[in-house]
Simulated assay, not measured.
Amino acid sequence: MKFLFPKFNKIGMPLLGAAAVALFVLQNRHKLRKRVRIAEERYLENGSVALAALPALRFALLPAMYGAAQKANKHNFGLLPRLGAPKWVKYTLGFALLDYTNYLWHILLHKLPWLWRFHNVHHVDMDLDLSTAWRFHIGENIASVPYRSFMAAFIGVPAPLVLFYEVIFEGCTAFHHSNWRLPFWVERRLCQVVVTPRMHGIHHSIVAQETNSNFSVIFSFWDRLHSTLRLNIPQDAITIGVPSYRNPAEQSPMRLFLMPFDEPRPWKLPSGKIPARNEDMPVTKTHLLP
């Protein structure tokens, strides 16, 4: 199995690093949501989780996806080789289908209890910013390896496309998790095509109906296609996190690592109240709805 990807290392990773620096500066100069917790505490927690999880992406997921695609290409296996289409069509359609399968994977993370145990580590963050984009439990990243590798082979994507897609995937994940307040008119139009910070902020709400919406990663039209899109919640009305995890003391690096192995908690606030939203709210200029 191939582990060394010179172009990804020399081009992709520096581009992602530059994007992260730019987003960090922009989110601090133009804040979208007010912070709930001390930034340095969260950076330590999120950085600790990422330190364990990110190597699994680079040294397990990426080689596995590339290897699966390469083997499928060699044996002319998968959906795309059967089309007999030009190369540019295969690359374009392959990119879109990879993104669609990640939309489906995100839904599975929320719907399957054993996967949610791991994904919950990402959602219990009480603030949402660039550091949250890397706060994924190593167990979740490892669990994604067989699914995403199989999908790369099943689609029959050209192996080099796997590397290109992963750079865009990681960059978009960083973008829509950031706390960057874009001009509203820009984001209102942008979210018609790609996932934006305000759109993804709704997904991190403590209201269950909102958490179970906006599952897309790059292109937002997957949520439109499956009626899981929600754009009618203004950012100042959102409380970020999971209702049953409101104690910052429970979010130490060790507690976050062990969290998937604890008994799951019901979707309730410590007071016992279930967060809800008035579904009859009038649409205002603070909504992303066109």
Rank of each mutant, 00 (worst) to 15 (best):
M1G: 11
L4R: 14
F5R: 11
P6D: 13
F8K: 10
P14A: 08
P14C: 04
A18K: 05
A19F: 12
A19Q: 12
A19D: 05
A19M: 15
V21F: 13
F24I: 15
V25E: 12
Q27K: 01
R35S: 05
V36T: 12
E40V: 15
E40P: 10
R42L: 05
Y43F: 06
N46H: 08
N46M: 15
A52R: 02
P55Y: 01
L57Q: 07
F59G: 00
P63H: 06
A69W: 13
A69R: 03
K71W: 06
N73I: 11
N76L: 15
F77T: 08
G78H: 02
L80N: 03
P81W: 03
L83G: 03
A85S: 04
A85T: 03
A85K: 00
W88V: 09
V89Y: 02
Y91H: 04
T92W: 01
G94F: 09
A96G: 02
L98V: 10
D99G: 07
H106Y: 09
I107S: 02
I107G: 15
H110R: 10
L112F: 15
W114G: 08
R117N: 06
R117E: 15
V124K: 00
M126F: 00
M126G: 11
S131Y: 03
R135A: 13
F136Q: 06
H137D: 07
I138S: 05
I138K: 08
E140Y: 10
N141I: 14
S144Q: 05
P146C: 03
Y147L: 12
R148G: 02
S149G: 03
M151G: 05
F154G: 00
I155P: 00
G156L: 04
G156R: 00
P158E: 08
P160K: 04
V162T: 01
E166W: 15
F169E: 02
E170V: 14
G171L: 05
C172T: 09
C172Q: 10
C172V: 12
S178A: 06
S178R: 02
W180Y: 13
W180E: 08
R189N: 14
L190E: 15
Q192N: 11
T196F: 02
T196D: 04
H200N: 01
G201S: 12
I202Q: 07
A208K: 14
E210P: 06
T211Y: 07
N212D: 07
N212Q: 11
N212Y: 13
N212G: 11
S216P: 01
F219K: 04
S220C: 08
F221K: 15
F221W: 11
D223Y: 00
R224F: 03
L231S: 02
D236S: 10
T239L: 06
T239P: 05
A249M: 06
P253E: 07
L258M: 13
R265N: 09
L269F: 05
P270G: 08
I274A: 02
R277F: 08
E279C: 13
K285Q: 10
T286G: 08
H287M: 00
P290V: 05
